[in-house]
């Protein structure tokens, strides 16, 4: 296998191992997601139909809030003991450091999503198990989008003042098209509309193309440009 990819895998493994030992960001992120889910119940008092109509939107707001907490730690984790400088000085190319960190953040956020989804279904009485494979596909695509852009911006903000404040200000506007797509598809899937085959209106599929486009554009842009960001 390509050397850079192997390095990326090693970095992803290192990040996941550190995180699963300390569980600092995954615990914080999962609890934050739960708190937001509970807060929504005070914000709205909706009937069953209305709730299904906004379910995708609620879910992705929770996921994107949780995602910002996770990617914020991606590079900040390396700051104590000057680990970041060592990583950059190591022979690993910048793109594999970035790719490794994105993959690790992807798995962490995916775990948080898999925890919050059943809780969401339970609290709001939503049947999320129908169309579950389609839902998993949307979650994978959109989560990758959030983590790849999030990790890139976490590299931008790691060395600047007000890091925790700047990351969401930069991240969320960029994520808007992705979130529009993910929210639309998720709502359609939760309402019981299949993504493919008979009965599909094409709404879920149209958003899926947007998610794929977003992922491809930002993954390639970030992999290409990360060199400039890490080495300044």
């Amino acid at each position: 296998m390509n050397r850079g990819l192997l390095t990326a895998l090693a970095i992803a493994r290192k990040d996941l191992q550190t995180e699963l030992r300390t569980k600092e960001s995954i615990n914080a992120s999962a609890s934050f997601a739960l708190v937001i889910l509970v807060l929504f119940s005070f914000a709205f008092d909706l009937g069953r139909e209305e709730l299904y109509a906004i379910a995708g939107g609620l879910l992705w707001l929770v996921f994107s809030f949780a995602g910002a907490l996770i990617v914020n730690r991606s590079f900040a984790r390396e700051l104590p003991n000057d680990c970041l400088d060592v990583l950059i000085a190591s022979p690993a190319p910048a793109w594999s450091i970035f790719l490794g960190k994105s993959v690790a953040a992807f798995f962490l956020l995916f775990i948080v999503e898999l925890i919050s989804l059943p809780v969401f279904g339970l609290f709001y009485n939503i049947h999320w198990t129908q169309n579950f494979p389609g839902l998993l596909l949307v979650m994978a695509l959109a989560t990758w989008g959030i983590t790849v852009v999030g990790t890139a911006f976490s590299a931008v903000t790691v060395n600047i003042r007000l890091r925790e404040l700047m990351l969401p200000v930069l991240l969320y506007p960029i994520l808007i098209p992705l979130l529009i797509g993910a929210m639309g598809t998720t709502t359609a899937l939760l309402q019981g509309e299949p993504m493919f085959g008979p009965g599909a209106t094409g709404e879920a599929f149209a958003s899926l193309r947007l998610l794929i486009g977003f992922d491809v554009i930002y993954t390639s842009l970030a992999l290409y440009m990360i060199e400039f960001i890490l080495i300044v």
């Binding site: 930069l170 960029i174 098209p177 958003s207 930002y218 842009l221 440009m225």
Partner: peptide, 27 residues
Amino acid sequence: ATLSAFVAIFAYADIPLVLMAIRLPNV
């Protein structure tokens, strides 16, 4: 200057995607 240039390029890349997203049927 470097980080700003990065943000500017990322922001510009978003504009066509935003246009595509808001043309979706559910908007």
